[in-house]
């Protein structure tokens, strides 16, 4: 199987280039894109550099752009991709080396939404009660693995990665806004009310299209906008 992979090591390369690899995916028993990357690294070229950990789509390490679409290498079947398989780092973030991007801006936007439960009432001796219906509102939100596939597919995030929270961060903002146990809804909404944080979303849906966990950040964003209408002056 033929691969064309983005290569760049700032220590020795003037600029990035694409490198071709042919590998016998049968021989190395490769099913997923990650299997193939590991086979290349193990048997052909140990300098090829990428992140990976869980190899089962839960840690969010190996988001990358495969044949033009963002996704996780470890859960993307080779059989679903046309040859040559073109692998590039997630778009829009600075490349550290090969398929590894610098995620700082992505994490900073996440931190900005105060992604932790806030509750100003004293905690009870046991659990805070939450009905199954209230809990169900968190489904489709809490499962985010911070892989950045969505935010790096979002044109608004590419243009304003310092000011626009981006789909991943906003998904988490909404996760706490709708949590029946969180009491900071008002300030959460107020914090997002500037022209950039939320309102740069143009509803293009790229984010939802690529999320490897089947989450829907675009929907969460429109829910936030609705909440803002309901809550603000």
């Amino acid at each position: 199987m033929r691969f064309s992979i983005y290569r760049y090591n700032p220590e020795k390369d003037q600029k990035p280039y694409m490198q071709e690899y042919d590998i016998d995916v049968k021989k190395y028993n490769c099913h997923m894109v990650l299997d193939a990357l590991m086979a290349i690294k193990n048997f052909m070229d140990e300098t090829l550099t990428f992140r990976r950990s869980c190899r089962e789509g839960v840690c969010g390490s190996d988001g990358m752009n495969m044949n033009g679409k963002n996704g996780l290498a470890c859960t993307t079947h080779l059989s679903t991709l046309k040859e040559p398989i073109v692998l590039r780092p997630l778009p829009g973030l600075p490349v550290v080396r090969d398929l590894i991007v610098d995620m700082s801006q992505f994490y900073e936007q996440y931190d900005k939404v105060k992604p932790y439960l806030q509750n100003d009432k004293p905690a009870p001796a046991k659990e805070r009660l939450q009905s199954p219906e209230e809990r169900a509102k968190l489904d489709g939100l809490y499962e985010c693995i911070l892989c950045a596939c969505c935010s790096t597919a979002c044109p608004s995030f590419w243009w304003n990665p310092d000011k626009y929270i981006g789909p991943a961060g906003l998904l988490q903002a909404y996760r706490f806004i709708v949590d029946s146990r969180d009491t900071a809804t008002e300030t959460r909404l107020a914090d997002l009310a500037d022209p950039f944080s939320v309102f740069r979303c143009r509803g293009i849906m790229n984010c939802t299209d690529v999320c490897p966990k089947g989450l829907n950040p675009a929907k969460a964003i429109s829910e936030i906008k609705l909440e803002m209408l309901e809550h603000t002056v």
Binding site: L117, K126, E127, R128, L129, S131, P132, R135, F176, D179
Partner: peptide
């Protein structure tokens, strides 16, 4: 320790009576 985690926000699944 589990109640602490719940207070921190861990989204446990729930029973009909609202408990973990």
């Amino acid at each position: 320790t589990i109640y602490e985690l719940e207070h921190m926000g861990l989204p446990f699944s729930r029973l009909d009576d609202g408990k973990i």
